[in-house]
Amino acid sequence: MIEIKTFLHKEFLMEWRQKYLINGVFLYTSSTIFICYLAFNIRGATITPIVWNTLFWIIILFSAINTIAKSFLQESNQRDIYYYSLASPGVIIISKIIYSAILMVIVSTLALILYSLLLGNPVQDQTFFAIVLFLGSLGFSSSLTMVSGIASKAGNSGMLMAILSFPIIVPLVMMIIKLSKNAMDGLDRGESLDEILVLLALNAITITLALLLYPYLSKN
Protein backbone atom coordinates (compact mmCIF):
# COMPACT_ATOMS: atom_id res chain seq x y z
CA MET A 1 0.00 0.00 0.00
CA ILE A 2 2.77 2.38 0.97
CA GLU A 3 4.67 1.31 -2.12
CA ILE A 4 1.71 2.16 -4.33
CA LYS A 5 1.51 5.57 -2.67
CA THR A 6 5.20 6.20 -3.23
CA PHE A 7 4.95 5.22 -6.88
CA LEU A 8 1.89 7.41 -7.37
CA HIS A 9 3.74 10.28 -5.74
CA LYS A 10 6.65 9.71 -8.09
CA GLU A 11 4.35 9.71 -11.13
CA PHE A 12 2.73 12.97 -10.10
CA LEU A 13 6.07 14.55 -9.26
CA MET A 14 7.47 13.60 -12.67
CA GLU A 15 4.35 14.97 -14.31
CA TRP A 16 4.48 18.17 -12.29
CA ARG A 17 8.12 18.79 -13.18
CA GLN A 18 7.66 18.32 -16.91
CA LYS A 19 3.96 19.15 -17.34
CA TYR A 20 4.37 17.63 -20.77
CA LEU A 21 1.70 14.96 -20.65
CA ILE A 22 -1.16 16.88 -19.06
CA ASN A 23 -0.65 19.96 -21.22
CA GLY A 24 -0.17 17.90 -24.35
CA VAL A 25 -3.23 15.78 -23.75
CA PHE A 26 -5.46 18.65 -22.86
CA LEU A 27 -4.35 20.57 -25.93
CA TYR A 28 -4.91 17.45 -28.06
CA THR A 29 -8.42 16.96 -26.70
CA SER A 30 -9.46 20.57 -26.91
CA SER A 31 -8.17 21.03 -30.44
CA THR A 32 -10.01 17.87 -31.51
CA ILE A 33 -13.19 19.24 -29.97
CA PHE A 34 -12.62 22.58 -31.66
CA ILE A 35 -12.08 20.88 -35.03
CA CYS A 36 -15.32 18.93 -34.56
CA TYR A 37 -17.09 22.17 -33.71
CA LEU A 38 -15.72 23.91 -36.80
CA ALA A 39 -16.38 20.91 -39.01
CA PHE A 40 -19.99 20.69 -38.01
CA ASN A 41 -20.07 24.47 -38.02
CA ILE A 42 -23.35 24.50 -36.22
CA ARG A 43 -24.64 25.28 -32.77
CA GLY A 44 -25.40 22.33 -30.53
CA ALA A 45 -29.12 22.57 -31.07
CA THR A 46 -29.03 21.02 -34.51
CA ILE A 47 -26.62 18.17 -33.83
CA THR A 48 -28.71 15.12 -32.93
CA PRO A 49 -28.21 13.62 -29.46
CA ILE A 50 -26.93 10.30 -30.87
CA VAL A 51 -24.26 12.05 -32.91
CA TRP A 52 -23.40 14.23 -29.90
CA ASN A 53 -22.94 11.17 -27.72
CA THR A 54 -20.94 9.09 -30.21
CA LEU A 55 -18.68 11.98 -31.17
CA PHE A 56 -17.95 12.74 -27.52
CA TRP A 57 -16.94 9.18 -26.70
CA ILE A 58 -14.82 8.85 -29.83
CA ILE A 59 -12.93 11.99 -28.81
CA ILE A 60 -12.48 10.61 -25.29
CA LEU A 61 -11.34 7.25 -26.71
CA PHE A 62 -8.66 8.84 -28.86
CA SER A 63 -7.48 11.11 -26.05
CA ALA A 64 -7.33 8.09 -23.75
CA ILE A 65 -5.26 6.07 -26.22
CA ASN A 66 -2.87 8.98 -26.69
CA THR A 67 -2.63 9.73 -22.97
CA ILE A 68 -2.13 6.21 -21.80
CA ALA A 69 0.25 5.27 -24.62
CA LYS A 70 2.62 7.70 -22.92
CA SER A 71 2.40 6.06 -19.51
CA PHE A 72 5.29 3.73 -20.28
CA LEU A 73 7.10 6.07 -22.64
CA GLN A 74 8.79 8.11 -19.93
CA GLU A 75 10.42 5.07 -18.43
CA SER A 76 13.79 4.27 -19.87
CA ASN A 77 14.96 0.71 -19.77
CA GLN A 78 17.51 1.16 -17.00
CA ARG A 79 15.04 2.95 -14.80
CA ASP A 80 12.59 0.07 -15.33
CA ILE A 81 15.10 -2.37 -13.92
CA TYR A 82 15.64 -0.07 -10.94
CA TYR A 83 11.89 0.01 -10.24
CA TYR A 84 11.61 -3.76 -10.39
CA SER A 85 14.32 -4.03 -7.80
CA LEU A 86 12.29 -1.75 -5.53
CA ALA A 87 8.79 -3.17 -5.82
CA SER A 88 6.82 -6.08 -7.26
CA PRO A 89 5.47 -5.67 -10.80
CA GLY A 90 1.93 -5.82 -9.44
CA VAL A 91 2.53 -2.66 -7.42
CA ILE A 92 3.92 -0.89 -10.48
CA ILE A 93 1.03 -1.78 -12.79
CA ILE A 94 -1.58 -0.90 -10.14
CA SER A 95 -0.01 2.48 -9.49
CA LYS A 96 0.19 3.11 -13.25
CA ILE A 97 -3.49 2.21 -13.62
CA ILE A 98 -4.50 4.49 -10.72
CA TYR A 99 -2.37 7.30 -12.11
CA SER A 100 -3.82 7.05 -15.61
CA ALA A 101 -7.34 6.74 -14.18
CA ILE A 102 -6.89 10.01 -12.25
CA LEU A 103 -5.44 11.64 -15.35
CA MET A 104 -8.31 10.39 -17.51
CA VAL A 105 -10.95 11.59 -15.05
CA ILE A 106 -9.41 15.08 -15.14
CA VAL A 107 -9.04 15.10 -18.92
CA SER A 108 -12.54 13.78 -19.61
CA THR A 109 -14.14 16.23 -17.17
CA LEU A 110 -12.37 19.15 -18.82
CA ALA A 111 -13.29 17.73 -22.22
CA LEU A 112 -16.95 17.47 -21.22
CA ILE A 113 -16.99 21.10 -20.08
CA LEU A 114 -15.42 22.37 -23.30
CA TYR A 115 -17.55 20.06 -25.43
CA SER A 116 -20.78 21.25 -23.78
CA LEU A 117 -19.64 24.83 -24.19
CA LEU A 118 -19.09 24.48 -27.93
CA LEU A 119 -21.56 21.83 -29.03
CA GLY A 120 -24.27 22.17 -26.40
CA ASN A 121 -25.32 19.69 -23.74
CA PRO A 122 -28.52 17.70 -24.34
CA VAL A 123 -27.97 15.47 -21.28
CA GLN A 124 -30.99 15.24 -19.00
CA ASP A 125 -29.47 13.35 -16.07
CA GLN A 126 -26.20 15.20 -15.47
CA THR A 127 -25.15 13.34 -12.31
CA PHE A 128 -25.63 9.98 -13.95
CA PHE A 129 -23.69 11.12 -17.01
CA ALA A 130 -20.85 12.17 -14.70
CA ILE A 131 -20.91 8.72 -13.06
CA VAL A 132 -20.74 7.09 -16.51
CA LEU A 133 -17.85 9.39 -17.41
CA PHE A 134 -16.04 8.32 -14.24
CA LEU A 135 -16.64 4.60 -14.87
CA GLY A 136 -15.62 5.02 -18.50
CA SER A 137 -12.34 6.72 -17.61
CA LEU A 138 -11.64 3.96 -15.13
CA GLY A 139 -12.35 1.27 -17.71
CA PHE A 140 -10.27 2.94 -20.42
CA SER A 141 -7.31 3.36 -18.12
CA SER A 142 -7.36 -0.19 -16.77
CA SER A 143 -7.37 -1.93 -20.14
CA LEU A 144 -5.27 0.62 -22.03
CA THR A 145 -2.50 0.71 -19.42
CA MET A 146 -1.91 -3.00 -19.90
CA VAL A 147 -1.94 -2.64 -23.70
CA SER A 148 0.47 0.26 -23.40
CA GLY A 149 2.81 -1.98 -21.41
CA ILE A 150 2.64 -4.56 -24.21
CA ALA A 151 3.18 -1.93 -26.92
CA SER A 152 6.13 -0.41 -25.04
CA LYS A 153 7.93 -3.75 -25.25
CA ALA A 154 7.54 -3.63 -29.02
CA GLY A 155 9.14 -0.25 -29.67
CA ASN A 156 6.10 1.75 -28.55
CA SER A 157 4.83 2.83 -31.94
CA GLY A 158 1.56 4.73 -31.87
CA MET A 159 0.09 2.55 -34.57
CA LEU A 160 0.73 -0.63 -32.61
CA MET A 161 -0.92 0.88 -29.54
CA ALA A 162 -4.00 1.71 -31.60
CA ILE A 163 -4.40 -1.61 -33.37
CA LEU A 164 -3.82 -3.60 -30.21
CA SER A 165 -6.26 -1.61 -28.15
CA PHE A 166 -9.16 -0.88 -30.52
CA PRO A 167 -10.61 -4.39 -30.73
CA ILE A 168 -10.05 -4.99 -27.03
CA ILE A 169 -11.78 -1.80 -25.97
CA VAL A 170 -14.87 -2.30 -28.16
CA PRO A 171 -17.11 -4.06 -25.58
CA LEU A 172 -16.31 -1.30 -23.10
CA VAL A 173 -17.05 1.49 -25.58
CA MET A 174 -20.34 -0.13 -26.57
CA MET A 175 -21.46 -0.47 -22.95
CA ILE A 176 -20.45 3.12 -22.16
CA ILE A 177 -22.25 4.58 -25.17
CA LYS A 178 -25.38 2.65 -24.26
CA LEU A 179 -25.18 3.83 -20.64
CA SER A 180 -24.55 7.46 -21.50
CA LYS A 181 -27.45 7.37 -23.96
CA ASN A 182 -29.62 6.24 -21.04
CA ALA A 183 -28.31 9.18 -19.03
CA MET A 184 -29.01 11.55 -21.90
CA ASP A 185 -32.59 10.36 -22.21
CA GLY A 186 -33.01 10.75 -18.45
CA LEU A 187 -34.15 7.15 -18.05
CA ASP A 188 -34.76 5.75 -14.60
CA ARG A 189 -31.38 4.78 -13.14
CA GLY A 190 -32.61 1.31 -12.19
CA GLU A 191 -32.96 0.59 -15.93
CA SER A 192 -29.20 0.86 -16.39
CA LEU A 193 -28.24 -1.43 -13.51
CA ASP A 194 -27.45 -4.37 -15.81
CA GLU A 195 -25.11 -2.30 -17.96
CA ILE A 196 -23.33 -0.86 -14.92
CA LEU A 197 -22.76 -4.36 -13.59
CA VAL A 198 -21.37 -5.52 -16.95
CA LEU A 199 -19.12 -2.45 -17.02
CA LEU A 200 -17.83 -3.15 -13.51
CA ALA A 201 -17.31 -6.81 -14.39
CA LEU A 202 -15.30 -5.83 -17.48
CA ASN A 203 -13.17 -3.52 -15.32
CA ALA A 204 -12.63 -6.27 -12.77
CA ILE A 205 -11.58 -8.71 -15.51
CA THR A 206 -9.04 -6.34 -17.03
CA ILE A 207 -7.53 -5.33 -13.69
CA THR A 208 -7.20 -8.95 -12.58
CA LEU A 209 -5.63 -9.87 -15.90
CA ALA A 210 -3.22 -6.95 -15.67
CA LEU A 211 -2.17 -8.06 -12.19
CA LEU A 212 -1.71 -11.66 -13.34
CA LEU A 213 0.04 -10.96 -16.62
CA TYR A 214 2.18 -7.90 -16.02
CA PRO A 215 4.81 -9.77 -13.97
CA TYR A 216 5.52 -11.94 -17.04
CA LEU A 217 5.73 -8.91 -19.28
CA SER A 218 8.23 -7.09 -17.08
CA LYS A 219 10.52 -10.08 -16.66
CA ASN A 220 13.72 -9.57 -18.60
Partner: peptide, 15 residues
Amino acid sequence: VTAVYNVFAFATLIP
Protein backbone atom coordinates in the same frame (compact mmCIF):
# COMPACT_ATOMS: atom_id res chain seq x y z
CA VAL B 1 4.95 -10.37 -25.19
CA THR B 2 2.66 -12.14 -27.64
CA ALA B 3 1.77 -14.79 -25.07
CA VAL B 4 0.70 -12.02 -22.69
CA TYR B 5 -1.34 -10.34 -25.42
CA ASN B 6 -2.86 -13.69 -26.41
CA VAL B 7 -4.16 -14.36 -22.90
CA PHE B 8 -5.30 -10.76 -22.44
CA ALA B 9 -7.07 -10.68 -25.80
CA PHE B 10 -8.74 -14.05 -25.31
CA ALA B 11 -10.15 -13.03 -21.94
CA THR B 12 -11.67 -9.90 -23.46
CA LEU B 13 -12.97 -11.92 -26.42
CA ILE B 14 -15.23 -13.96 -24.16
CA PRO B 15 -17.55 -11.08 -23.16
